[in-house]
Structures are given as C-alpha cells and as structure tokens.
Simulated scan of single mutants.
Amino acid sequence: MPARLTVHRDGASIAVHDLGGDGPIVILLHGLAGSSREMRATAEALEGCHVLLIDQRGHGDSTRRPQDLSRNAFVGDIIAVIEDCAPGRRVTLVGQSMGAHTAFLVAAARPDLVDGLVMLEGHVAGSDDPDEALRLGRYFASWPTKFENEASARQFLGDDAIVDAWVADLRRTGEGLVARFDADVMERTIAAVHQPRWGEWEGLVVPTLAVFAKHGMFTAEAKDELIRRRPETQRVDLAAGSHDAHLDAFDEWVDVLRRWLATPR
C-alpha cells in the first residue's frame, strides 16, 4: 500500500501517495477533474522508480475549495512536495493535460529541482475561446449532486475513456456517490490554464518529451508549433488513444514513458 503523506501549504492540504522504491523519483500529475487514482496504473508500471502520486489542489483528497487557484499556487504546491518529500533530490515530472501544464511550469520555475519533463496531451498555447472554461464549468455543474450507484453514474457520464476513472473516484456516502470536486473550482482552474505561456516554454532548459495521442485534443498545427518554438523538445505521436491516452492507449503510453525514463540525460 502506498504511504499517504500530506503537505500543508498556503492554507491548502496536498495529498501525496508515495509508492516507495530506491530508484529515480518520478512525480505523476493528473488532469482536470481527475485525481492520482487515474495515474496509479502508470505508476505501478514504472518498476525501478520511486513514484509519488499527487492530488492537485481542488482535486481528490487534497483541499477541495482552496482560495488560490492560480497557476502559481499549483506550481508552489509541487515545489513544496519535492522539497518536503524528496529533499536534496531532483525529480522527473510526468503530467497529463492540466497536469502536464503544471509540470511544465514547475520545470520552468525551478529547473534545479527537475531532471526531466514528460507532457502527455499537454500544451502551453492556452485557448483563444473565452467561453471554453465556462462550458466545462457548466458541464461539471450539470452532474447530479449524487449518483445512486455506479450504474447510474455510468449511464449519465457515458463511455469515454475517462469515465472509469471518474466513477472510481466518486466518494461513497450514505446517500450515494458524489464527486470529489466542485464545478466552479474546475472552471476557475482551467481558465488559468488557458492563458498562453510561450515565454516560459521557449526559455525552458529541462529535457522534455511531448507525447500526443492519435485522437487527442490538439490539431496538427498546434503540435507542430510547440516543437517549432522549442526544437530541442522530443516528440512522440502515439498510434492510438484519446486525450486520456494514459487510460485508453496504456500499453503504448507506458512503453514510450519507460523508454524515455531509461535514456541517460
């Protein structure tokens, strides 16, 4: 069983699940409205690594309604985890979607703490659609206050790759199953992610791997621009998978990740 740790910072409690091990330290960061649970299979596939799984603020077992939802707050949390849980060590950051964005900003802010960066279905360009965050907030607000059982949750949520993770993450109460996050917190969180961060990207000095799924959320032009603006970035395009390729293209994703982690840098 992973050791459950808690890092307190800036009025928030950040849940850390330490899988242990004597190898290089890898920190896995989930996407919006997810939690460390959806990264558990990836963590368990990284034999020889010391893996830390983090519930980012507003998610999972961390503080549900933190006052500060800025990108700086998320970055500060991860820096605090590294300094508290891996003192004197450098880590590799691996994130998906919003987690990739957090990982990238940590690497940009504190390259002295980071050996490598892996971004799965992540980008730094932001969004020029002012209503995108609002639509996501409305979607999460449309969820029932509670689901009677897993079957009713699946009926409502559909059959996308992320649904298994969402259902597994629901909190059981005497009245039913409830989400571990609030819609307005998700909306405010993703609105901050949608701001472009090209300056930090172009100045990034940490070795970086960008992984994109065949059926992911980014256009060919967006993927090409990421590499054009930082040509030293390694890029891998998976032969399958959606935006949640860590779930529906698991074997290929893990193979790519293992190979990159094993490459001397």
Rank of each mutant, 00 (worst) to 15 (best):
A133Q: 11
L247K: 12
D244L: 10
L136D: 14
L19P: 07
Q155H: 07
L247N: 11
V7C: 07
K223G: 12
L209F: 06
R65D: 12
L157S: 03
D164A: 13
D251N: 04
A183R: 13
L53H: 14
F104C: 11
V193A: 06
D169Q: 04
G158K: 06
A41W: 02
G23Y: 03
P111A: 03
C85T: 14
H8Y: 14
A153T: 01
G122P: 09
R180L: 10
R37F: 01
G99E: 05
E175S: 15
G199C: 07
K223S: 14
E44S: 04
A220I: 10
V26T: 02
S152F: 05
W260M: 01
H17T: 02
F104D: 09
G88N: 01
L46H: 06
V75Y: 06
G34L: 08
A192T: 12
A222E: 14
R197V: 00
D61W: 06
W166C: 03
G241L: 08
A168K: 11
I27D: 02
E148L: 15
S13P: 09
A15D: 09
A12K: 08
R138C: 12
G99S: 10
G23M: 03
R172K: 15
T208F: 01
G60C: 15
D129P: 11
D248M: 04
T173Q: 05
V26Y: 00
L113S: 04
L53T: 12
